[in-house]
Design a protein around this nucleic acid. Structure first.
Length: 543
DNA sequence: GACGCTCTAA
């Protein structure tokens, strides 16, 4: 008996050994391993070896190499390699499009997809999820609908990945009704599809409906997982609805599930966003007590709490945790640290962190530009802003322009206003938001150009809100223009919702200090408060 | 030889 088992094991080993011994197989395994672990250097060495041996152009290796470079964030390399191979078959298109979509390069994913179709390659069930994801992130509902037709025509709706991606696309585009229709039309309801729909409901603010949906599906025999509950937890944490949050956690326990690092991070993040800093710190501590390791997301969620109350000691403590966890180099953590140190008045430390790091994303740049601007180092802020545009490695976003406008506002640099506004819209295709207009009104108002500011408000592409009028009112009172002040005050009286009185007061204080990001934050809270029907209850133990 | 979906981060 024992001998027999051994013999079987030996023979299987032998077969494994034989197949492992095929050189081609070894290369494939190595490439896959390098790809999985993101080992670029060794991957490059193997690539060189394959080139020397005339194997790199073999279609099979070419696909693996494209995947390797894509996974190691070398997308231009991946693309170059792709272009070198004539008559690329559909598999390599899929690898490339998938890599772009996974890395968040949705524009590139879409454009390669169009290229693929122009070359006469028909979309299949493998490529559609990537493209649908890109549509969702871009709010490109039109293309999404066309893809839906392609799915129906080719009966891809039988593939669970395609269906989930389709529901996700409709959800992200805010078409929850369509997402529901697809979901209820599916015979074998997939858990990921349910989660995509739940996420859509939460993002549309119909959080209670999302819970009902989960309960309904439980009745039908589906077993929600931790992702389902985390989606709901995020929804109720952000809307500050503690009572329902507790219900959700109870539901979760009913299914034998425990809060994981994502659940805790959502709760902490919700508390911080609702300015409940002390509770956020308590929750963070409780999370550590129950033995959950904070992730980079947890650290970057809690750090703004230190920043808003300028609690440098606590900020340093969290910095310590990040170092202990080995995640202080994460680009989001680093950005949050820069922001925290700057807001706590420790600009030198913020600068030190910023200039020491090579990996900077938009958030990192924004944090440092805001840091300079808020400390009155306006020329440094503008210089850094210009450097960011010159380097062209990172694209500015709407906040980058708010930071730059804030710097101009503090320095009274009215002359840059128009060129900045033009640059933002024409070169970077960023639509001006209310915060930008409030910033511009503030800038003009501070310089005493009240008529110009009023002109700007009257010609705005969107309806001015109380922050825009508030900025004008502030400037009018500063310069003693009572006629215009009366106009602004009248508009404000009409716009000011009674229920949000204290928040509005707070936001106008921020507006006075040109803290436009905080203004936007308070605005979000006001918006959420309107959604909330149940009054808040005291914090209930979650663990 | 492929491939893809859902939750946390200023």
């Amino acid at each position: 008996m024992v001998i027999g088992t051994k013999a079987i094991r030996l023979s299987t080993n032998f077969i494994a050994y034989r197949s492992y011994c095929s050189t081609s197989d070894i290369y494939t395994r190595l490439l896959e391993s390098y790809t999985q672990n993101g080992v670029l250097q060794s991957g490059k060495a193997l690539h060189a070896h394959l080139i020397i041996n005339g194997l790199a152009k073999r279609t099979h290796f070419a696909s693996k190499l494209i995947a390797l470079y894509a996974e190691c964030k070398q997308l231009s390399h991946a693309r170059k390699l792709f272009d070198k191979i004539p008559n690329s078959d559909i598999r390599r298109w899929i690898v490339l499009i998938g890599a772009y979509a996974r890395r968040g390069f949705y524009e590139e994913a879409m454009s390669v997809f169009s290229e693929m179709q122009r070359k006469g390659k028909k979309p299949n069930k493998f490529v559609l999820p990537s493209v649908l994801k890109a549509c969702g992130r871009f709010n490109d509902f039109r293309t999404g609908e066309i893809l839906h037709c392609v799915i129906l025509k080719n009966e891809f709706e039988l593939d669970s990945y395609v269906v989930s991606a389709l529901i996700d696309m409709y959800s992200k585009c805010g078409k929850v009704e369509m997402a529901k229709r697809v979901f209820y039309g599916t015979v074998d309801k997939d858990l990921v599809a349910l989660n995509a729909l739940v996420s859509g409901c939460v993002q549309q603010g119909i959080v209670k409906e999302a819970v009902d949906l989960v309960v309904e599906m439980k009745v039908h025999g589906m077993k929600p997982n931790v992702v389902t509950y985390n989606t709901l937890i995020a929804g109720f944490s952000q809307t500050n609805d503690r009572a329902t949050l507790c219900d959700v956690i109870e539901l979760m326990h009913d299914d034998g599930l425990e809060l994981d690092v994502v659940s805790w991070t959502s709760i902490v993040s919700g508390l911080v966003q609702n300015f409940r800093n002390e509770e956020a710190f308590d929750t963070f501590k409780r999370m550590l007590d129950v033995g959950i390791c904070p992730s980079a997301a947890t650290i970057s969620s809690i750090l703004p709490a230190c920043a808003t109350v300028a609690d440098l000691m606590r900020g340093k403590e969290i910095h310590g945790y990040a170092v202990a966890m080995g995640i202080e180099k994460d680009v989001y953590v680093k950005s949050a640290l820069i922001d925290m140190y700057a807001k706590c008045g420790f600009l030198s430390e913020a600068k030190h962190l910023f200039y020491k790091t090579c990996e900077r994303n938009t958030v990192t740049w924004n944090s440092m530009i805001f840091g300079y601007a808020n400390h009155g180092y306006c020329s440094e802020a503008i210089e850094l802003f210009n450097q960011m545009l010159r380097e062209e490695k990172t694209k500015p976003d709407h906040l980058t322009f708010i930071a730059a406008l804030t710097a101009c506002s503090h320095a009274g640099l009215v002359q840059y206003r128009e060129s900045l506004f033009k640059l933002m819209q024409e070169k970077y295709a960023i639509k001006p938001r209310l915060e930008h207009f409030a910033c511009m009104v503030d800038l003009l108002g501070k310089a005493g150009k009240l008529d110009e500011a009023y002109d700007l408000i009257q010609n705005m592409s969107i309806e001015p809100d109380l922050f825009v009028w508030g900025a004008l009112l502030g400037a009018c009172s500063q310069h003693g223009n009572m006629d215009l002040a009366a106009v602004a005050a009248e508009k404000l009286a009409k716009l000011e919702p009674e229920s949000a009185g204290s928040s509005v007061l707070l936001s106008s204080l921020y507006a006075d200090a040109s803290k436009w990001v905080n203004v936007a934050k308070v605005k979000r809270v006001i918006k959420k408060k309107k959604l909330k029907k149940v009054p808040g209850c005291s914090w209930v133990e979650v663990a």
